[in-house]
């Protein structure tokens, strides 16, 4: 479970995140929604520990996340918008690297990689260097890399961006399967169909402030909308009016 409280972050004079609060429960896919520049990625980077929050706190399974406490990230897997694969290493070597850095021994690693090859259909690219991979291949390799440790909490930043229809469907199936295994999944996206198709819970963020956290049906009811897209637009418009 991920709990975010009163998170604030400034870059110079720009307040990227002003006040973000939400809770992402285990066995639930939480959609983190917001326009471009709303502060989604900055919030996720603070949860991942690569950025330090100016104020507020992030706890993962009850443990406070800190840049200087690596163990606080032990149960977290982050797929950031930058996939960051080592291009001179093969997919297998990329996965092995992350697995061994998370403390997996060789035999466990071997078994896990084989199950990931099956789960993500990696057989064609597993022993290829990742340089020159398509967006879909990069996504699969990066996802395999964070899943090898079987983290209890997953953060996926724009996971389907650039993927074709088949890859998107496949990835959604995988995410659902992970949710069904009891994993806490947070997805940052601005693709409303994705939220519609995947998310159980929705966190709305606008101009660095959380507008609210809703169950999907409650979200539609709250804004008297039929689709998540309509509800999102109404919510953002209402927030803009509120800001004056």
């Amino acid at each position: 479970m991920i709990e975010v409280k009163n998170l604030k972050k400034k870059f110079g004079k720009v307040e990227a995140v002003k006040n973000v609060n939400f809770t992402a429960a285990d066995g639930v896919i939480t959609g983190f929604l917001g326009e471009n520049g709303a502060g989604k990625s900055t919030t996720l980077r603070m949860i991942g520990g690569s950025l330090k929050a100016d104020q507020g706190s992030v706890t993962i399974d009850g443990r406070l996340v800190s840049m200087r406490d690596p163990q606080s990230r032990r149960h977290l897997g982050v797929l950031s918008d930058a996939k960051g694969l080592y291009e001179r290493l093969s997919t297998r070597e990329n996965i092995e690297l992350f697995g061994s850095l998370c403390g997996l021994d060789k035999s466990t690693l071997k078994d896990r990689i084989q199950s990931l090859v099956d789960l993500l259909d990696l057989s064609e690219i597993i022993d290829r260097k990742t340089v020159g991979f398509s967006t879909g291949q990069k996504m699969k390799a990066a996802l395999a890399r964070i899943l090898v440790n079987r983290p209890q909490n997953l953060i996926l930043d724009e996971p389907t961006s650039g993927l074709d229809v088949y890859s998107t469907r496949h990835l959604r199936d995988i995410i659902r399967r992970l949710r069904d295994e009891g994993i806490c999944v947070v997805i940052s996206t601005h693709i409303m169909q994705e939220v519609d198709a995947l998310c159980d819970s929705i966190v709305l963020i606008d101009h660095g402030v959380t507008i609210g956290q809703f169950e999907k049906q409650h979200f539609l009811n709250e804004y008297q909308a039929v689709t998540v897209e309509d509800a999102f637009v109404s919510a953002v418009d209402r927030a803009s009016e509120g800001r004056g």
Partner: peptide, 15 residues
């Protein structure tokens, strides 16, 4: 530049 540092920063290890 290749954005490979950040994913490693998010692993349970010291910088």
């Amino acid at each position: 530049q290749r954005q490979t540092l950040e994913p490693v920063f998010m692993l349970p290890l010291h910088r």
